[in-house]
Design a binder for these strands. Sequence first.
DNA 1: CTAGGGGTTCGTCAGGTCCA
DNA 2: TGGACCTGACGAACCCCTAG
Length: 121
Amino acid sequence: MAVTGDDTDEETELAPSHMAAATGDMPTYQIRAPATALPQGVVMAASPGSLHSPQQLAEEATRKRELRLMKNREAAKECRRRKKEYVKCLESRVAVLEVQNKKLIEELETLKDICSPKTDV
DNA sequence: CTAGGGGTTCGTCAGGTCCA
DNA sequence: TGGACCTGACGAACCCCTAG
């Protein structure tokens, strides 16, 4: 996300969405992706109807768990990537606002100089 | 050289929200 | 309401730096 000099748009794609998740005051910064592509190598389950023996059931449970862990692993990576991006975005915004603030302070000082009564020396 | 402290990254779990 | 998804929290592994 390129942040240009005086870019002050209020609604970036990373703007905090609906609410603070779970515990906190930290805003969320996610956009629900419409679809998640399965990582390579993932084989979808056989139809449940084809399972018979306890061993097959156990294998299916194991396979489901591994699939879940893999998906969560990918989700965690994506979540961290978005968070980094969000933090970068905030930092850029801070930089922009600091520049703005500095300019305003300078302007204020200039106006004060102009408006204040002169003191003779 | 090495113990250990601080920082980063990663995988996992738990608990929350969202949606069919 | 159950399953999918998201994310904070936590611990482990790793790296780098520094004092002794």
